[in-house]
Structure formats: C-alpha cells, structure tokens
C-alpha cells in the first residue's frame, strides 16, 4: 500500500532523513521507534506533505502511485491521514463543522456532491459512540481549551470520520495518562481492518501494549537501522538504544 524508497529529506539544507526504506501493506500495523532527534516526526510530516521539508531523493508511493509532488490536501484525499503530536486549535470553528468541511472537500476532490446532512449526522453519531465521545464535546471549538487526552481523542475521531487507507500516528501517546492512552488505543484498534494500515510513531513501548504492531522499526540518524517484530520493542524498552548503536559500529 505505502512504499517508501530511499527517502532523503532536509529542512533548511540540514539533512534529516538519509535513505529510508519502508513498505506497509494493507492490514498491517507498523511501529517506528527511535531516540529524540532521530527524524521520526519528520518522516510523518514528509509523508503527509509538509512544505517546510524538501525531499531531496527517493520516492513515496501510495498504491503504486508516486505522491511526492502532491499537496497535503491531495494526499489526504487519496487516503493518507496523520495524527498530530500537537494538534492546533481553531477558535470559533467546532469540531463538527471542521470535519464536515474536511469530508466535503474530500468528496469534492472525487467529483462527489456534499454528504447529505442527515447522513453526516448519522456518521458523526456512530463514530462518536464508537470512540465513547460525548457529542457536546464535538460542538466545542476545535481543540480550544482541550486537555492533551481530549486533543488526541479528537484526532482519532477525525481519523474515524475520514476513514483513511493509511494512518500515521505521530507520538499519539505523548502527554497521555494510562486511561487516556487506553481510550485512544482502543479507538485505533476498532478502526483497524484488513483494508487499511497504521503506522505508529512513538518514543516508548508503552503504547504498543495496546496497539500491537506486526513490525517494529528503529529509526536512528534518519535511517531505519533495524526492523523486527514486537519483541524488538520490548528489548528497546529494557535496554534502550545504545546496544543498537554498538551493533552498528
């Protein structure tokens, strides 16, 4: 589904990603782990199409189509979703209105008419129930005054509404207590099926107790230096990253 080949990216002439190769197939959950400054968030942003990063080499393919020249919104329309580490707030625009706009813009890009209001309402109700979200919460201004947990839950709600092919969760666990973490992970698991895929970017193994990955990759200095199964995550939790560094030398 998603193929990343020899991806190099830099910001303000500083190279951050130095040849990433990654293949994610439908139905899979991948975890990308690594120390601070390894390039984890950059990788997520580059896949989502953030302008500030310049892709200097390589390819990103979604269903065998090169998406590297596409704008962020075009990538979203094709089924890429990124959950932000720090979701922004928009005063005066409710979550409901925001997601309506996002859905209808996506439909427009496919030449479809706006989703009828009744259908939209039904979908919102269904997804809110799935994620155990009070609908009053959705009529509040997007992320304004939300707690860390509320913001992340809101991200997963948007993901549920948009039904992406591939979801990249950037440090979704950061700033969450264990209860909030469970709620968010539970939501992701409910949305996971054989036709979509999830890439979890995280610093800690903790989240992977709840979202169990099929593959774990270690990102260091802008490269994937080791890949394995979930046992690799336990080993990282136990031993840290130094042993990998040593192995590389």
């Amino acid at each position: 589904m998603l193929q990343i080949k020899n991806l190099h990216a830099s910001v303000e002439d500083k190279a951050i990603l130095n040849g990433i190769n990654l293949e994610v197939n439908a139905g899979e959950i991948h975890a990308i782990m690594g120390p601070n400054g390894a390039g984890k968030s950059t990788l997520a942003s580059v896949i989502a199409g953030k302008d500030e990063y310049e892709m200097t080499k390589g390819e990103i393919l979604l269903d065998h189509e090169d998406i590297t020249e596409l704008d962020p919104e075009e990538r979203a329309h094709k089924g890429i979703f990124m959950s932000f580490q720090y979701p922004i707030s928009i005063p005066g625009v409710s979550t409901t209105n925001f997601i309506k706009t996002a859905i209808n813009e996506t439909r427009k890009s496919r030449g479809e008419a706006d989703m009828p209001a009744s259908e939209m309402l039904k979908l919102i109700k269904e997804k809110a129930e799935l994620l155990d979200i009070d609908r009053k919460f959705l009529s509040r201004s997007l992320n304004e005054g939300f707690s860390g947990g509320e913001k992340k839950r809101n991200e997963i709600f948007q993901m549920a509404m948009l039904e992406p092919k591939i979801a990249i969760l950037d440090e979704t666990d950061s700033g969450l207590d264990i209860d909030a973490l469970k709620v968010v992970a539970n939501g992701v698991n409910k949305l996971k099926n054989k036709d979509n895929a999830v890439v979890v970017i995280t610093h800690y193994q903790r989240l992977l107790d709840y979202i169990v990955p099929d593959f774990v990759h270690v990102l260091m200095d802008g490269k994937i230096v080791k890949s394995g199964t979930k046992e690799l995550a336990y080993k990282l939790e136990e031993k840290g990253y130094d042993w990998i560094k040593e192995e590389l030398v």
Partner: peptide, 13 residues
C-alpha cells in the same frame, strides 16, 4: 503555517 498544514492534512484545500 503549522495551522495551515494541519487543516490541509485533513483534506481542506
């Protein structure tokens, strides 16, 4: 620009 990217990543032009 961060806010713009956020919205665009959700499919909003």
């Amino acid at each position: 620009s961060e806010a713009l990217f956020y919205m665009r990543s959700r499919g909003i032009g």
